[in-house]
Design a binder for these strands. Structure first.
Lengths: 349, 349
DNA sequence: TCCCGTTGCTGCATCGATTGTGCGGCTTGC
DNA sequence: GCAAGCCGCACAATCGATGCAGCAACGGGA
């Protein structure tokens, strides 16, 4: 730019090129052939535009065309392996279709989540993915009101298109693996399998708990209420609950099913204060995968949720735009202790 | 909305309320007092707006006001503990000042990075933070041309305001810790400290390598060129280089300074195939922190970069808007092996 | 009664890009 | 020689929100 006071507009380019603004607009876009602008004019205009560092004002274009080019996604947290993998896939797929991704995190706060959705609607996002929704019904109402195409991921919405992990199968398989790894009789407080972490109320946890319950029941040891500790996702809270549990039953239980990586952080924190042989006497599973967590001082059975698959299916559903709300399931993957999973982005870092 | 065909506008509200569009605009905003709109009118209009599920069109507002309410940040990757922590802080601080954060990842591709910056400029972001820039000079040129306030984080730009980790100090301290932990003579290929990961060309790695070199030199064992293996950040590549190194020197070296968490993933992958006592004979450090990596089967000296602090300083610099470009340093924190760090978000998950 | 000030609101231009319509000028056909 | 048609472009309306300037109505003071 010769004068850096302001961004160049098509009117500036028009003045400099001697053409009209509409000609400039056409020349810089795709429509110049249709509008019968001569190639020489187009080239001249494009030259000047490049010289001036012109770039279109998307607010003006969006206003006129009633489309913004934005796709939105709401996640609970950035700072989380599962959701940040989703972000990576979401962004890649958005750019593949020439759209600009906008990702916002709600901190699992329903009010914040709603505020974010409203904001994204204000910015006229064309589609919206809501991952791990805190209040799916309110979000559904908002999106319906704004006539916005939206889709839930990880946590489904009532009567809204959703893509979720197959939490039941993932948790059932993990529970079976834990039972197969150690003989657990279920006859004393210590000799039981405990599930720790997650909210009783949220869909994913509910399905996992259901699976946990069913598998234990099949195995002839239906779980007592105190075997299921839905203490949320926060590391600190999980650590406290873990400590309490150990105090209550007088030591580590035979097996622990940890419901998320963040909760596992807290559990690990507790375990790290115990003698290693005690920890190794327990069998430990975690519903989520992390390469470092896979190689701790004790073996951990893990489940890798297919973040990329979830997002891919979400986009597919957006494209197909089904008349009736669909619930699509994506299978998670069981990861044996001490195993590395090759992420699609492991050639980057 | 009574008819969900379209989003309500101030013109719809005006029609329904019998007021004029300008009155509606004022009533829904902050300026109704200044414009002497009566309180009763304001309430009536707000009632109707709420009923209609009205929300302002930010494209129109932004166009008119020449401000978008957006703040942008470019990061190399979402799927990375360091950068996703930045995202979390960036978003929290943006919302604190009533702005909407837009985060994009470049995959460390300079061309993609430039395209993203152009896009963000098109959307009229008001400030831009570029973390881990792949091509700082090109970004600087673009932002200057668009008259945009921008700031580099983690990797500084020439003659542009920047906030970076104190990589020299962090790496020097880490190197010293490694040397203090094991007697390393530096007299044979195996009995040396190796640095692995990062790009020789990028600023952060360059400073760290400089520190590594200086400390080793002080200790009387100036490093050979082959002791510094700048193989990038990708796990797979780091694994291969690690394997090659072991082949070359006939086993694990006495010490390894791993330059990033992602490279450490690859290193771990190699180490996991070796007998544990061999691995434990080496001293291992990683420039980055992860709670699980802190509790592996062997001790790891870690460095935690203050992502939140970096972003906080970046915002501060944006607010202060210094005339001359400044380079602000933020100290990283040394984390002893088997130690947990309490993140500011560890009460969430 | 006239003038002035205040109150409460409306009209209109504007931001930058897009797009339907239209208008000269030149070529072509017969 | 005149109508028809194409070429290459300009004009003006439009998207939704904002904010300046101004207008009608009303009250109060002289």
């Amino acid at each position: 730019m010769t004068r850096a006071s302001r961004k160049a507009t098509i009117y500036d380019i028009a003045r400099l090129s001697g053409a009209s603004p509409s000609t400039v607009s056409a020349a810089l876009g795709e429509s110049w052939r249709k509008r019968r602008i001569s190639e020489s004019t187009v080239e001249a205009i494009r030259g000047i535009a490049a010289e001036q560092g012109y770039s279109a004002n998307m607010q003006a274009r969006g206003l006129r065309q009633a489309r913004s080019g934005l796709v939105g996604m709401v996640i609970p947290l950035h700072d989380n392996r599962f959701f940040s993998s989703m972000s990576q896939s979401f962004e890649a797929l958005a750019r593949d279709r020439g759209m600009v991704p906008v990702i916002a995190s709600s901190m699992r706060d329903p009010a914040e989540e709603l505020r974010i959705v409203e904001t994204l609607i204000s910015y006229a996002v064309e589609y919206l993915i809501i991952a791990g929704a805190a209040d799916p019904d309110a979000v559904t109402a908002l999106c319906r009101g704004a006539n916005l195409r939206f889709i839930f991921v990880d946590l489904p919405g009532q009567g809204a298109p959703s893509v979720v992990s197959d939490n039941y199968k993932g948790a059932a398989d993990l529970t079976r693996r834990l039972l197969a790894d150690r003989a657990i009789t279920g006859t004393s407080g210590k000799d039981r399998l405990y599930l720790l972490g997650g909210d009783m109320g949220d869909y994913a946890s509910a399905r996992r708990i259901e699976a946990f319950r069913d598998v234990l029941t099949e195995a002839g040891q239906p779980p007592l209420p105190e075997q299921i500790i839905g203490c949320g996702y926060a590391p600190r809270r999980a650590m406290q609950e873990m400590a309490q549990l150990c105090t209550r039953i007088g030591g580590l239980p035979s097996g622990i099913f940890v419901n998320s990586l963040t909760a596992f952080e807290g559990v690990l924190r507790h375990l790290s204060g115990l003698p290693l042989e005690d920890v190794r006497a327990s069998v430990i599973g975690c519903y989520d995968y992390d390469p470092f967590a896979a190689y701790l001082q004790f073996p951990v059975h893990m489940v890798r949720q297919d973040a990329h698959g979830l997002i891919r299916e979400a986009y597919r559903m957006i494209d197909e735009n089904p008349h009736d709300p669909v619930l699509k399931m994506v299978a998670p993957e069981q990861i044996a202790p001490r195993t590395f999973y090759d992420s699609p982005f492991s050639d980057r870092g």
